[in-house]
C-alpha cells in the first residue's frame, strides 16, 4: 500500500473514532452503526463470493447464528467478550458442518442451496424461539450507544484489514484462482475444496461477529429477525453495486446503499425498494464490476486522453 493511502486510512479511522465525541444525535450514530454493520457483512460476503466466486444467498444464516449465540449467553449473564466470540464461533461451527456437502454444489446450485439453508434456519429459529428478545430492564437503564459504536468500528477495521491481507496473501491468490477456473487452479496445485472451505469459514466468522455485535447493540427484536433472507439480499446488493472481488467495493457499496436507502425512505417512502431493484438490475446488466469498475473505466479514459494530448503536444513541438 502506498504511503499516501496508509495515511488516508489512518486519518479516516481517527476521524471515525472521534465522531461519538462530537455527534449528539443518536439517530446519526445509529446510521453510522448500520453502515459499519453492513461494511462487515459486505466485506465478509465478498471473501466467499467475490474472492472465491461462490455466490451465497444464505449469508444471513451466519449473521443470525452469531446474534443468537451472543444474545442467549449475554442475557443469561455471561461476560460480554466470551459471548461475542461464541457468536462468531457458532457461525464457524455451522460453516464447517455445511461446508463439505454445500461445496458439492457448483455455481448457481450453490446459490440456491445456500438460499434454502438460510431459509431452513430462518423458519426453524422462528419455531424454536417464537418470542421477542428484549434487553433486561437493568441493561436498558444503563444502555449507551458509544460502546456499541466502538465495537462495530473495531470489527469493521479488523474485517477490512483482514480482507486486505488475505487478498494479498498466497491463500487469497489461491481463492481467486479457484474463482477464475476451478479445474485450472487444481492443475496448478491449488486445493480448490480447501480454499473454498477456508473462504467460507472466514466469511462465516466475520458475519457471525457482525451478528454478535448486533445482539449487543439492538434493544429488542424477534430471535428470527437476523436470519431473515433480506440480510443476505441487501448484502449481496451492496457488494454488486460497489464491485465484487475488491477491497474498497463492498465498503463503497455499503455506504452508498445505507445512505441512499435513508435518503429514499425520507423522500420517496415506500418506493425506495423499487429504486433499489432497478438500480441492482442496471448494475448487473450494464456494470458487472460495480462502481469500482466504472471508476476505473473513467480513469482509464481520462489517462488515455491525457497521454494522447501529451503525444500530440510532443509531435507538434
Amino acid at each position: 500500500m502506498a504511503r499516501i493511502q496508509l495515511l488516508l486510512v489512518a486519518v479516516v479511522v481517527i476521524l471515525l473514532a472521534c465522531l461519538p465525541l462530537v455527534i449528539e444525535k443518536d439517530s446519526t450514530l445509529n446510521l453510522l452503526v448500520l453502515i459499519l454493520l453492513f461494511i462487515i457483512m459486505a466485506s465478509s460476503w465478498n471473501i466467499l463470493g467475490g474472492f472465491t466466486g461462490q455466490t451465497s444467498l444464505g449469508h444471513a444464516a451466519f449473521f443470525g447464528l452469531g446474534s443468537l449465540a451472543t444474545r442467549l449467553l449475554w442475557i443469561q449473564g455471561f461476560p460480554l467478550l466470551p459471548s461475542l466470540l461464541a457468536g462468531g464461533g457458532l457461525a464457524v461451527v455451522f460453516a464447517l458442518v455445511i461446508g463439505i456437502p454445500a461445496f458439492k454444489l457448483k455455481g448457481v446450485y450453490f446459490a440456491i442451496g445456500t438460499l434454502a439453508l438460510g431459509q431452513i434456519l430462518f423458519v426453524t429459529v422462528g419455531n424454536l424461539f417464537p418470542t421477542i428478545s428484549a434487553l433486561p430492564v437493568e441493561a436498558l437503564r444503563t444502555y449507551q450507544l458509544a460502546p456499541r459504536y466502538y465495537l462495530f468500528l473495531v470489527l469493521t477495521i479488523l474485517t477490512v484489514g483482514f480482507a486486505y491481507l488475505l487478498a494479498n496473501s498466497r491463500v487469497g491468490l489461491g481463492m481467486m484462482a479457484v474463482r477464475e477456473d476451478e479445474d485450472a487452479a487444481e492443475a496448478l496445485g491449488v486445493n480448490a475444496r480447501r480454499h473454498k472451505l477456508l473462504a467460507l469459514v472466514f466469511s462465516a466468522f466475520l458475519a457471525g461477529m457482525a451478528g454478535s455485535a448486533f445482539a449487543y447493540y439492538h434493544v429488542s427484536y424477534y430471535y428470527q429477525f437476523p436470519f431473515a433472507p433480506i440480510w443476505s439480499f441487501d448484502t449481496l446488493t451492496m457488494v454488486y453495486i460497489g464491485g465484487q472481488g475488491t477491497i474498497i467495493g463492498p465498503i463503497v457499496g455499503a455506504i452508498f446503499f445505507v445512505l441512499l436507502r435513508e435518503f429514499l425512505v425520507l423522500n420517496v417512502g415506500e418506493y425506495h425498494l423499487i429504486v433499489f431493484g432497478v438500480l441492482f438490475i442496471l448494475v448487473v446488466l450494464f456494470l458487472p464490476g460495480g462502481f469500482v469498475e466504472a471508476w476505473e473505466k473513467i480513469r482509464n479514459l481520462l489517462v488515455r486522453r491525457r497521454s494522447k494530448r501529451d503525444r500530440n503536444a510532443s509531435t507538434t513541438a
Binding site: Y240, V278, F280, I281
Partner: peptide, 12 residues
C-alpha cells in the same frame, strides 16, 4: 446473471 436480475425484479 438472470438469477440476479430476477432478484432485482422481485423487489420491484
Amino acid at each position: 446473471n438472470t438469477m440476479l436480475i430476477g432478484f432485482g425484479l422481485t423487489l420491484i
